[in-house]
């Protein structure tokens, strides 16, 4: 099975690091993974996006024109990537700052109000992990155990006390994601 995922939002929302944790978690499960960022100058203040591919087979192109899953964190990203979700695929978006919601009927649209929830719970720092939790609920690309393992592996020791907060965020994300269509 192959998961071709695009994650897109504003620079600073944790788009690239969410992708990295997802890729690392895939690695923990012995999968083939590729993490390809749009590393252009547009990242600061503008949009940032990363393509993550998690697969049981060797990954061919790291650059794609259509995706199984699009995780969308702002309006420009929604405008850009909604048309690029494969028929029957998944679009997950955070409602914060979205004026024109997704229109397509031939894909599965999920809304996750992670930004608002994270603000309320004073969990802004792990907002991206809430989104990741949402993804794991609707498409279990990796298991929560693998994510925690990946966090232990990638975070420096001094930040390991933050792992429970990350886990809480993932579980919260799994709770608050809702199907829209």
């Amino acid at each position: 099975m192959t998961h071709e995922i695009i994650i897109s939002g504003f620079g600073g929302q944790g788009v690239l690091s969410m992708g990295k944790i997802l890729a690392y978690s895939g690695l923990m499960e012995g999968k083939e993974v590729t993490w390809m960022p749009a590393y252009g100058p547009e990242q600061r203040g503008g949009t940032a996006n990363v393509t993550v591919i998690v697969s049981d087979e060797p990954v061919s192109s790291p650059i794609l024109s259509s995706y199984d899953v699009a995780i969308i964190l702002n309006q420009p990203s929604l405008d850009k990537f909604e048309p690029k979700v494969k028929k029957g695929g998944i679009l997950i978006y955070d409602g914060n700052g979205i004026n024109v919601p997704p229109q397509r009927k031939d894909i599965n649209v999920y809304r996750i109000d992670a930004m608002d929830t994270a603000a309320k719970l004073n969990m802004i720092k792990v907002f991206n992990m809430m989104i990741l939790g949402g993804l794991m609920k609707v498409r279990p690309v990796v298991t929560i155990e693998s994510v925690l393992k990946a966090l232990r592996k990638t975070l420096p020791e001094r930040h390991h006390h933050l792992i429970p907060m990350n886990e809480e965020a993932i579980r919260k994300g799994m709770e608050i994601i809702v199907k829209e269509n």
Binding site: L27, M36, P62
Partner: peptide
């Protein structure tokens, strides 16, 4: 090229 340089893989 920039793609192979910037992307992460195992």
């Amino acid at each position: 090229d920039g793609a192979i340089g910037q992307m992460m893989e195992k």
